[in-house]
Simulated assay, not measured.
Amino acid sequence: MNGTKPAPILDQKHVTDYLANSYQRREELAQQMSAAGETPFIVFFEDIYNQPAEVGKALLLRLFTFLDIDPADHSEYDALVNDALFNRGQKTSSVLEKVPNIEELRAKLDTLSNGFDKVFIPS
C-alpha cells in the first residue's frame, strides 16, 4: 500500500480477537520465563522507532549491553544504527492513518487493553 489507494475497513472482531490472543500468549511466555528463572530484556519496536533518534539509540545500546554485545567491536555500528533508525522501519503510522475506521479501532483497543494486566514492562 503506497498511500495512493484507500485502505480497507478493518474488521473490529478480528482485530480485538488478535489482541486478546496476543495478550494470552504474552502471559504464557512470561510464565515460562519465570519458571525457567529467566529475566528477559523487554523492548518493543515502537520504543525504538517512535521516539527521538537519541532515545532509540540509547535503548539499543542498553539492549546490546544486556546481550553482551560491544558496539566498539563493530566498526560500522553507528552507520548501521543510523540507517536503521532513519531509513528503515515499518512506517505503520502512515498506513494506519489511511484505514477508514482507525479511530474507532484505536478507542476499542485502548478500552480492551486496559482490561489486561501488563505482562511485560519495557526494560
Rank of each mutant, 00 (worst) to 15 (best):
M1F: 05
E54D: 13
E27C: 12
A30P: 15
Y23N: 15
G89T: 02
P71W: 01
F45H: 15
L10C: 08
V15N: 07
Y18K: 12
G56E: 01
Y49R: 09
E76R: 12
Q90G: 10
E54A: 06
I9N: 11
R88L: 04
A79M: 06
S75T: 14
S113E: 05
V119C: 10
Y49H: 12
V43I: 10
L109Y: 01
R88E: 07
A30W: 13
Q24K: 11
L59A: 14
L63Y: 14
R106Q: 06
D117Y: 02
L85Y: 01
R106M: 06
T16K: 14
R62E: 04
E38W: 06
D78Q: 14
D117K: 05
E38M: 11
N101G: 03
L29R: 14
N2C: 03
L63W: 11
V15Y: 04
L61H: 11
Q90L: 03
K13S: 13
S123F: 04
E97H: 09
F64V: 01
Y49I: 02
P71N: 02
D78P: 10
T65P: 07
F41M: 02
S113Q: 11
R25A: 15
A107S: 10
L67R: 14
P6M: 00
A36R: 15
A107E: 04
E54F: 07
E103K: 03
P122W: 02
K57R: 14
G37A: 05
H14G: 13
P40A: 01
P40F: 01
R106H: 06
F41Q: 10
E103P: 01
P122Q: 03
P122N: 08
G37I: 03
S34A: 15
G89Y: 01
N2F: 04
G115V: 02
L19N: 10
R25D: 15
R62I: 00
L61M: 05
D110K: 09
Q51R: 09
Q90M: 08
L96A: 06
R106A: 10
G3V: 01
N50H: 04
L105G: 00
P122A: 06
K13C: 13
A20Y: 00
T39H: 09
V43E: 09
Q90H: 08
I42G: 03
E46S: 06
S94Y: 05
E38C: 08
T111S: 12
Y18G: 14
L85Q: 09
I48S: 05
I48F: 02
K57Y: 03
M33H: 14
T111D: 12
F44A: 13
A58K: 11
R26S: 15
E103W: 00
F116W: 03
E46A: 04
L109F: 03
V119F: 08
Y23T: 14
L96H: 00
K108M: 07
I69R: 08
G56H: 02
G89V: 00
